[in-house]
Amino acid sequence: MKTKRKDLLGIENLTVDEIELLLSTAESFKEVSAREIKKVPTLRGKTVINLFYEPSTRTRTSFEIAAKRMSADAVNISIASSSAVKGETLKDTARNLEAMKPDAIVIRHSSAGTPEMLSRYVGCSVINAGDGAHEHPSQALLDLLTVKERLGRIEGVRLAIVGDIAHSRVARSNIYGFTKLGASVTVAGPPTMMPPGIERLGCRAAANMTDAIKDADVIMMLRIQLERQDEAFFPSAREYSRLYGLDADKLRTAKKDVIILHPGPVNRGVEISPDVADGPYSLILDQVTNGVAVRMAIFYLLLGASRET
């Protein structure tokens, strides 16, 4: 299986073969980060621009480290220090960045579809690092890799995603990714945070959290995105935590060998209790480690080969 794709905009339009190629390539790249000299010359002379219109520590750092471990030059632009605050449009920003001949632009933006639009303006690769409530493909890939590594498979795995499904690009990308590879996905959250018609994506909507997690092999807790909420979707953080937070009590209703994922950053005591987040079932830090490998695989497969233009 090969890919001739220019961009990585989402999981929705990837084939099963492409997802599997990305995962197996990422597995190989894990070894590079385990070396004493964590660098390979593969993308020497390539330039990657990280264009982040939203705050990020993990994802931006992960993309930057991935690029640097492959010898590409990584440049970070965050919105606070960019010309966007002076009123430059995204299109102008894109054209100007393109004029500096980068090989890839990694973009995060609060509006769904921005990476897709950007990809039409520029000839270089565009990688979606999260766009609004649409998709976050590299997150889904690292979640897939983490589960595959631990359970040895994706097919037949039962995944429960709990939290703010409506605002979550992580949920959307993971529903696409896991269902494509043959897992069954159940989602649960407060009724105000459950988008109507979510079943159309191929998942099951559970009535409550206990129902969602009772048979799950994997529980994915979503972050409550306070910054994305202009109205109140739940009365209080305490009530949310009581009904939809994962703590030791709720965990007892789940399978004994369940594994727990969280995309970070964790709101401790809201969607997940500290003892669970740091407990033996949690793979939160494995996810972060795998994030670098997955992003190296993305760069390798999109940037390495020549493309006829």
Partner: peptide
Amino acid sequence: TLYRDDLAIKKTQPTLKKM
């Protein structure tokens, strides 16, 4: 594979193997 000199001129990327 990661050290090859023809990665930039190949049409598709060679599959990574085991190190």
